[in-house]
């Protein structure tokens, strides 16, 4: 492991966090239709606007506000909620933990189903099995998560198939089964697009790998087909999937907004909706920034994993 490379990537990651905070700041402060209007609605009187701006420190020069905001992000201080007056960071941590649990279960589901199915489809290319898998994944790719979530709710939470609760969250300390029982349906709902996407990516990169010249070399050495698949193609063919999984984590961080809303799951996503409805700006900023930062970290991790798995990438340059 090359520490210079690691250091460089860390610097880039920090820069990305900084840049994203700036972007969020820019969108919320600089876009026409300013914050006070956002909070009060468009019909507010000028005095009310001026008062709110003074309350929030919005009458300060933009660069002071900016430094204050970015400094806050770097120290994980997002200010106080307009609605409850509670520090935003206190509000967001438990929710983040719950959202990450949901994402972890959803991710696990896509890894354990999509990757094997993708490999099977690639290995049995152009057979019935392949066509079945790819066609099904096609449909999956076209179902937005709010549709799949609503349909799952319709099918599995009411008689005759009342298999799952309609929503909510049970902490892990109350037992794995109840925990999973509440998580499973939203996790599956979140997976429609993602699972299909991972599957198609896995299949296409495996197909490409299986057509490569070094696979031909292996077969011409007399290596048996199963060993060709797992000994030679597996590692190279799954490399792109690492990146795809990180991308999907980003997709999930968006999808949680919908899934948590539908399943009344108390995570960051639900918080975003509440913040939009109640026009709670600091909460909105934090609830958008925190999953974004999680996504940036996921990308960083994927990058490192990729370089560890692929000997061609020396961590030097």
């Amino acid at each position: 492991m090359n520490y210079v490379y690691l250091l460089k990537r860390l610097v880039y990651m920090l820069a990305a966090v900084l840049a994203v905070s700036s972007a969020v700041f820019a969108i919320t402060t600089l876009v026409p239709g300013n914050v006070a209007n956002y909070i009060l609605g468009t019909g507010a009187t000028e005095e009310r606007v001026a008062q709110v701006e003074a309350d929030l420190g919005l009458d300060r020069p933009v660069h002071v506000q900016y430094l204050d905001f970015v400094g806050g992000v770097l120290t994980l201080d997002f200010g106080e909620s307009f609605v409850s007056g509670q520090p935003v960071s206190e509000m967001i941590w438990p929710r983040l933990i719950r959202t990450l649990q949901l994402a972890a279960v959803a991710m696990t589901i896509s890894i354990v189903t999509a990757i094997p199915l993708g490999i099977v489809a690639a290995a049995k290319r152009d057979t019935i099995v392949d066509q079945l898998v790819t066609t099904t994944s096609y449909i999956g790719l076209s179902v937005p998560s709010f549709v799949s979530a609503t349909l799952l709710l319709l099918l599995f939470t009411s008689p005759p198939l009342e298999l799952f609760p309609r929503g909510g969250y049970v902490a892990l300390k109350n037992g794995v089964i109840p925990w999973l029982h509440h998580l499973l349906l939203p996790a599956i709902a979140m997976n429609t697009v993602i699972l299909a996407y991972v599957l198609r990516q896995t299949r296409s990169s495996m197909v490409e790998t299986l057509e490569s010249e070094y696979i031909r070399t292996a077969r011409l050495k007399g290596v048996a087909e199963s060993k060709v698949l797992f000994g030679h193609a597996f590692r190279n063919g799954l490399l792109p999937t690492v990146t795809v999984l990180a991308l999907n984590f980003g997709w999930m961080m968006g999808a949680v907004v919908i899934i948590e809303e539908i399943f009344a799951y108390p995570g960051v996503g639900e918080m975003i909706i509440q913040a939009v409805d109640s026009r709670d700006l600091p909460v909105l900023q934090a609830a958008i920034l925190v999953p974004t930062i999680a996504f940036i970290i996921a990308n960083f991790v994927a990058d490192i994993v990729y370089t560890l798995l692929d000997p061609r990438i020396t961590l030097g340059e």
Binding site: E213, Y214, A218, L220, G222, H232
Partner: peptide, 25 residues
């Protein structure tokens, strides 16, 4: 039979050694 002959009694050395060797092995 083919598998026991290939690589053992008949060795095929492909062109483009760069892409004919497994990059991660």
């Amino acid at each position: 039979q083919l598998r026991s002959v290939r690589g053992n009694r008949i060795a095929h050395v492909a062109q483009n050694p760069g892409s004919s060797l497994n990059p991660s092995m």
